[in-house]
Nucleic acid binder design. Structure first.
Lengths: 198, 198
DNA sequence: CCTTCACTGAACACAATGTTGATTTGATAA
DNA sequence: TTATCAAATCAACATTGTGTTCAGTGAAGG
């Protein structure tokens, strides 16, 4: 029984791998089930035993990544992060978030990069926004305004994601995971200084 | 020299309108030339007298919007903006940028929203990044580092765009153009304070 | 009145889709 | 060993969208 499940699993993995490859090469739009079956070296009919269509593959991949990412984002506490960074140290929970993205760099690059998948960026923003900013709201009364909080979440989450996208687009070998974490705080500090001075 | 040099302007407009509508409803992927011709109330063959395929329509729309947007973004000078806002006034050039987006809200919502067009977000970030941050680099030596500047551009441009996306997603009737401009500076100030205090 | 030209309508070959039914493969368990 | 059964194969099918072609229509204006 377990072997049957494993064969099943490997075929699905082959389809996903072929999918990532094809989206990177030609964009989601130009992916066809026919080509997927060809590169995954399976029969076209077999594809339909695993997925209903290419959207189904996309959703499967997104779920997989978002669930794992959320596991790490959960442990980020902005207040602790600021304090840790002020002492010149790297904040471990955030390191794990960036490391998770680096580990799955090809998939994240596909979903966030030039051939981005509609909606995935939004989903990532929501994860970042919900977890990181729920805790920041304790800090200041201004965030109690739900509308302001909503825009603040969009603001911060987009900024962080923008830096990650830039990192992935550049091939993500330019900066190590630790340098990326340091960069985020350097950017925040820089912005804080500019605002304070002007 | 094509037989059909002068073509009806209104037909192209009808195609674009149908295109925006269909992307909003079903996403770019599910747009078909057949359905476009149907909703634009033209013959399917007529479509091909104007555009080569649906990608062609998309590019036309993007060009149109990006060119107009850039006209306004050009005049934004961050140093002036900060000073104007410190005096409790609204910075006019930025108002014009937001007003431009509001004017073409359906199109921008289509290209930036849930069914976002791959690549359009990046193009907007580049416009924001190039124009707004070229001038900020005079302010501080830290920005002289080209790598830091690149990430700073991604950081700020993504943040601004994130707020605009949120605004559009909510139906963009919640806040007026002026309130949006004020919100951006409120967000910046808030972030500056949090960073300074921690 | 007749030309021009954007658009129509119908037909074409082609490609991908999603489904079906009959068949092969290979690991497991009696 | 052999029967079993899930997984994958193969071929065929109707359907839908594509991009192109070409003869024809009707309104504007020279």
């Amino acid at each position: 029984m377990s072997v049957h499940e494993k064969m099943n699993f490997e075929t699905k993995q082959a389809i996903k791998k072929a999918f990532i490859q094809q989206v990177e090469e030609e964009g989601f739009e130009r992916v066809t089930v026919k080509k997927l079956a060809l590169t995954a070296q399976i029969n076209r009919g077999t594809f339909y035993l695993h997925y209903s269509d290419k959207y189904d593959v996309m959703e499967d991949l997104q779920q997989e990544l978002l669930m794992e990412l959320e596991r790490y984002v959960k442990h980020v506490q902005p207040v602790d992060a600021f304090q840790t960074m002020k002492m010149g140290q790297l904040y471990q929970p955030f390191i794990k978030v960036i490391a998770c993205i680096k580990e799955h760099a090809p998939a994240f690059r596909m979903l966030l990069g030039e051939q981005e998948s509609p909606g995935f960026t939004q989903k990532m923003k929501i994860i970042f926004g919900n977890h990181i900013l729920d805790r920041l709201s304790v800090l200041r009364e201004e965030v109690q305004d739900p509308e302001f909080q909503q825009y603040l979440q969009a603001f911060i989450a987009s900024a962080i994601l923008g830096v990650i996208q830039e990192w992935l687009d550049k091939g993500n070998e330019n900066l190590t995971v630790e340098e990326m974490v340091a960069l985020h705080f350097r950017l925040l500090r820089f912005l804080g200084n500019v605002v304070a001075d002007s």
